[in-house]
């Protein structure tokens, strides 16, 4: 009786794993296989010939490579901006009881009820006027608006998790305020801050709507792929899709330990 239940559980778990992984495997087949695989019928479930060289050469021709580099720039900028703006606010929420703290927190939470990406529409108009339309910086600004509330809440919980006593001990034993932050708080917060940074990166890396609305010629990878949908052959699309997926899978691997802590906190 117990044994059969166990079997049921294990097969269920494995089925969900397959449900997640098999589609990624298939898009990889299409992406790396090139044109011959795309038009094959019936489709082979095993790669006939596998060549990364062809794959990358092909990406360069399609301009996907340049778009990807732009995407990386945007995501890195978004990551830096989110942390620079968000981490101090998170620290303030965690360590100070100040008038308006709850109001601020509520405001941050409220952004969640809004489809923030949609705001790229009026921003496109403003960005044209400011001369940052169709630039890496403009897209990064918009993406920071998406990632910032998340960065604030997560860093706040990170700093809450570092006992105040540790900081006080540093003060008592001769540290100034900034000194205690540098010597005690920062070393302890670094892993969590890195995880937050990676999340900001992924949020930006994956964003399609705002990136598409805010760029014309200097498209990011997602924006570029969106235009390719109606123009380019399927293999370019799949190759681009694969390129989009791979870093995310790696990132999730690196931050998996923090995933639940981060979202557990972000959900309160």
């Amino acid at each position: 009786m117990i044994g059969s239940r166990r079997v049921l559980l294990i097969s269920g778990v494995l089925m969900i794993c397959a449900w997640t992984l098999v589609p990624i495997y298939l898009v990889a087949l299409g992406g790396v296989g090139g044109a011959s695989t795309i038009y094959a019928w019936p489709k082979p479930f095993w790669p006939a010939s596998l060549s990364i060289g062809n794959f990358t050469a092909f990406l360069q021709i399609e301009g996907i490579w340049a778009a990807m580099l732009r995407s990386v720039e945007v995501a890195v900028l978004c990551m830096i901006l989110s942390l620079l703006l968000g981490a101090p606010a998170g620290y303030a929420l965690a360590r100070f009881a100040f008038r308006g703290a709850n109001l601020y927190r509520l405001m941050i939470l409220m952004t969640r009820a809004f489809p923030v990406g949609i705001l790229a529409l009026p921003l496109a108009v403003s960005f044209v006027r400011l001369g940052i339309y169709d630039t890496v910086f403009g897209v990064a600004l918009m993406h920071t608006a998406l990632a910032l509330p998340f960065a604030v809440l997560v860093t706040a919980s990170l700093f809450v998790g570092i006992p105040r006593e540790l900081e006080e001990a540093a003060w008592v034993f001769g540290c100034s305020g900034p000194g205690a932050f540098r010597r005690v708080v920062m070393p302890l917060a670094i892993p969590g801050i890195a995880a937050t940074a990676i999340f900001a990166f992924v949020i930006s890396w994956n964003e399609v709507f705002a990136a598409s609305v805010l760029t014309v010629r200097n498209k990011t990878l997602t924006a570029d792929l969106l235009t390719l949908l109606s123009e380019a052959p399927l293999q370019s699309q799949l190759a681009g899709g694969l390129l989009l997926i791979l870093p995310s899978v790696l990132f999730i691997f690196f931050v998996r330990r923090y995933l639940f802590a981060l979202w557990g906190v972000a959900s309160r």
């Binding site: 997640t20 990624i24 489709k43 989009l244 997926i245 995310s248």
Partner: peptide, 29 residues
């Protein structure tokens, strides 16, 4: 298992669309 189950969390909706396009297109899997 946690890692595998949460992989889609990091995948862009565009990429997800492309994944299923590859599967569901005329000559798809």
């Amino acid at each position: 298992i946690l890692w595998i189950w949460t992989i889609p969390l990091g995948i862009s909706d565009l990429a997800a669309g492309l994944v299923w396009l590859a599967i569901l297109t005329d000559k798809g899997y």
